[in-house]
């Protein structure tokens, strides 16, 4: 009595006996497995968020409003795995994405006081830090 279909939705609960051609309701428990995004998933998400963030915040006058944007928070939320990707991005296109490094790497600040207010120099300070610490852009 191995019926091959399990989608029978008839209510057999009031029947005492099952005939061979009947299929008893089957309850299947699917084990709950936590979904962990792969590195490729995170990489795709990173680029999606960077593109969205750049478009949405291009005209904002304050860095504070740029880093308050939800897409920026998602970039930071990816964590240290995103550091090489951020380095690649800011090497090719220096911008406020460098501030994600400040937020991910909270205990590191390689930016000298002389770079204050000069975003290109802030980016260069982080790229030099990456070179010193042998962190390759991806």
């Amino acid at each position: 009595m191995y019926a091959c279909h399990v989608t029978d939705t008839n209510d057999y609960s009031n029947r005492k006996f099952y005939h061979y051609w009947m299929v008893a309701p089957v309850s299947v428990t699917i084990p709950q497995i936590a979904y962990r995004p792969s590195r490729d998933d995170e990489f795709a998400k990173f680029h999606r968020m960077v593109a969205e963030w750049r478009i949405e915040t291009a005209y904002t006058s304050l860095a504070r409003d740029k880093i308050d944007h939800p897409a920026f928070k998602k970039i930071v939320g990816i964590g240290p795995i995103a550091i090489p990707w951020i380095l690649t991005e800011i090497r090719h296109r220096p911008d406020f994405l460098v501030l994600a490094l400040h937020q991910i790497h909270k205990y590191e600040n390689p930016v000298p006081a002389s770079a204050r207010g000069r975003l290109n120099e802030i980016v260069n300070a982080w790229l030099s830090w990456a070179n010193r610490n042998v962190i390759d852009a991806d």
């Binding site: 860095a63 504070r64 930016v111 207010g117």
Partner: peptide, 12 residues
């Protein structure tokens, strides 16, 4: 030449 902003980290 500079980005002006009153950020707490003193980057600007």
């Amino acid at each position: 030449k500079h980005w002006w902003e009153p950020d707490q980290d003193g980057l600007f």
